[in-house]
Design a binder for these strands. Structure first.
Lengths: 221, 221
DNA sequence: TAGCTAACGTACTGGTTCGTACATTAGTGA
DNA sequence: TCACTAATGTACGAACCAGTACGTTAGCTA
């Protein structure tokens, strides 16, 4: 979500395809996240850029393709963050905890992305399915998880024979729910899951949960 | 989601306020879950009932209030299910596992409800906030969790000093994510989280996770 | 510097969609 | 059985909104 900030010469139009495109994407991300796909207004997006609706159709073709472009960029951001993951110098337990915490942090830092994913799920992930960039894109974090799990199993620290994708789902579900369902959860239980004062509590709870699962003696229960 | 099925006398209109109201709610639930709040079409809802759009406005007042009514009924269903919870005769570990499994089952059995909750979160839970029936409704499951946790702590089975609401969030997040994010997860990782063949796997994984967390020695990690 | 094209703006349209004015009838109680 | 009201149907309007036809200009290049 690289934001566009330029000296902005005072008057008249300046030609800058890249800036215009990026600005449309920025505003569209906010608008789609705010109101959902059908609730988002192309006119509103246009009004909040320094350009016009015409340009949205010029660059993206239509509302649908614009939403796909917004998704593609948002997933690109998380991919980049995951590519920078540097936890494999840690011992497996610490590495997994650190990975979980980074996932936690990223979700918290990008609520718009979480909303976009929720919206995309309402629509059956049809935009992802129709995108060349996104189909079966996977996640760099998965490879990291795979390697940590392997070394954890080898060293005997992890008792469970856990699949990397499953563990990724487990971590993601916790991080995702906390942000995505913040509003209904708060309204029903009177507790803000994203309360900054509770941040550390929820963050360590995630690590505790994952580590407990990976190191548990499966005889119990 | 009590579905309406009556002998349906062949011709002419029958006056049945309750049936008409319930039928509208049934169809509206499907339509809102299908397309989201803004994507849902009042005309479409009307067309799929045995009555007309006029009746939607007669009984509910408008699209917004109809959505609120749909939410109220859906939450009512889950409340009822939770009220029937009968796990306290089990030992704490088995009771928690059973509770988690029932949550798992309910989420899987009511994907429309999950979608409605996702949609309501996109809209900041404003309908719940504006509903007398739903504000701070809480959840019967919470009381059950509270009691199980207490007895588990007393008997020394649970090492962790866990809050009931937090544990409820933990269980819910796993169950919710699996259904709500099924589509994006499937599109990105090529794995269907709701694949019936994997159902038992994910169900026991949830129980293992929760029990491991509750019985773990917090020194690790 | 002429001319060409990518980039941009304006104004409009056609279909959609929530909501309602008005007319009607089924069933009930006096 | 008559009248009254809750329940229902029809037809329409007005606003909204995605998308486009058409015209304009900035800036590069030959």
């Amino acid at each position: 979500m690289t934001s566009v900030e330029e000296p902005a010469r005072p008057n008249g139009r300046i030609r800058d395809a890249a800036r215009t495109r990026a600005e449309i994407l920025d505003v569209a991300t906010q608008e789609f996240a705010r109101a959902g796909y059908d609730g988002a207004r192309v006119d509103e997006i246009a009004a909040r850029t320094r350009t016009t609706k015409r340009m949205i159709y010029y660059y993206f073709g239509g509302k649908e393709q614009l939403f796909t472009a917004v998704l593609e960029r948002s997933y690109g951001v998380i991919r980049e963050a995951e590519q920078g993951l540097d936890v494999e110098h840690l011992d497996p337990v610490a590495a997994i905890r650190r990975l979980a915490e980074l996932t936690f942090d990223h979700h918290e830092a990008h609520p718009d992305f979480i909303r976009l994913v929720s919206i995309e799920n309402i629509h059956g992930a049809e935009h992802i399915a129709g995108s060349e960039k996104l189909g079966r894109i996977g996640s760099p974090a998965l490879d990291v998880i795979r390697r940590i799990l392997e070394s954890g199993r080898e060293s005997g620290l992890f008792t469970a024979d856990v699949d990397a994708v499953d563990l990724h789902a487990m971590i993601s579900s916790y991080c995702f729910f906390r942000v995505a369902n913040r509003h209904t959860f708060g309204a029903l239980f009177g507790r803000d899951l994203v309360d900054p004062a509770q941040r550390e509590h929820y963050r360590s709870m995630l690590g505790d949960m994952v580590i407990a699962y990976l190191t548990a003696d499966r005889a119990t229960g």
